[in-house]
């Protein structure tokens, strides 16, 4: 039971904007209010269509706080794609992103990695200088066979594109093979059991 056709996980340091990215994608909203840490992880899903078919994408937004690190496998296990976020203006978050990628490579070989530089608007508006060049991040991503994107949850830049790309690249190969199992999946037994008992 997974609640969705495929699973995407958001990873990265505290405060890099994972929750904002999910919120922009799911609700098309952005709130600039003081940072509210995610506690554990949050789940949301959205239907997305790729090549004429609809799929439910389940997104796990994890907490960046170090204390949840020990639990992280619980959240990224069996993910088809991981969006590993770093704040374009904070170098330490890029280093942390690299660590996440190493860990994913070790534990979740089949998970595609999308390296995501967040808060692009802050850089574009000149509020803060970027902590590393676009080229450097891109080069790193290429080196590990990952996609690199720069997003802004404030303006919406590249947010929809990122998730669409994930759907296009991740859904088809595996889901196609499991077409039947998908139709059968919404576990009718469990549902009925609960209804009968009430």
């Amino acid at each position: 039971m997974s609640g969705a056709d495929f699973k995407v996980v958001l990873l990265g340091s505290e405060d890099v904007g994972k929750t904002s990215l999910m919120k922009r994608y799911i609700q098309d909203r952005f709130q600039c209010r003081p940072h509210q840490n995610t506690i554990g992880a949050a789940f949301a899903s959205r239907t997305i269509s790729t090549r004429g078919r609809q799929f439910v994408m389940g997104i796990w937004d994890t907490a960046g706080s170090e204390r949840y690190y020990a639990m992280s496998q619980l959240y990224y296990r069996d993910a088809k794609a991981a969006i590993v976020c770093f704040d374009l203006t904070e170098l330490v978050t890029f280093d942390r992103a690299k660590q996440w990628i190493t860990e994913l490579r070790n534990h979740e070989e089949d998970c595609k990695i999308y390296l995501c530089g967040t808060k692009k608007d802050v850089v574009d508006d000149g509020i803060k200088a970027p902590a590393l060049s676009h080229e450097k991040a891109l080069q790193y991503a290429k080196g590990i066979g990952a996609v690199y994107m720069e997003t802004s949850s404030k303006t919406g830049l590249n947010v929809g594109e990122l998730f669409q790309l994930i759907a296009d690249e991740c859904v088809l190969p595996s889901i196609h093979n499991r077409d039947d199992s998908i139709k059968l999946r919404p576990s009718p037994n469990k549902n009925n059991a609960c209804c009968l008992a009430s």
Binding site: T19, M22, K23, Q36, N37, T38, I39, G40, A41, A42, F43, A44, D61, Y68, M71, Y75
Partner: peptide, 29 residues
């Protein structure tokens, strides 16, 4: 004290010290 629960369904470890201080329960919030 956690506004973030209002935004989305959460799945979080929580230890209840009187119940069992050694381990986490998992909370769907």
């Amino acid at each position: 004290s956690s506004e973030s629960f209002k935004a989305a369904e959460s799945w979080t470890p929580i230890c209840l010290p009187k119940f069992n201080s050694r381990g986490f329960l998992h909370a769907h919030v």
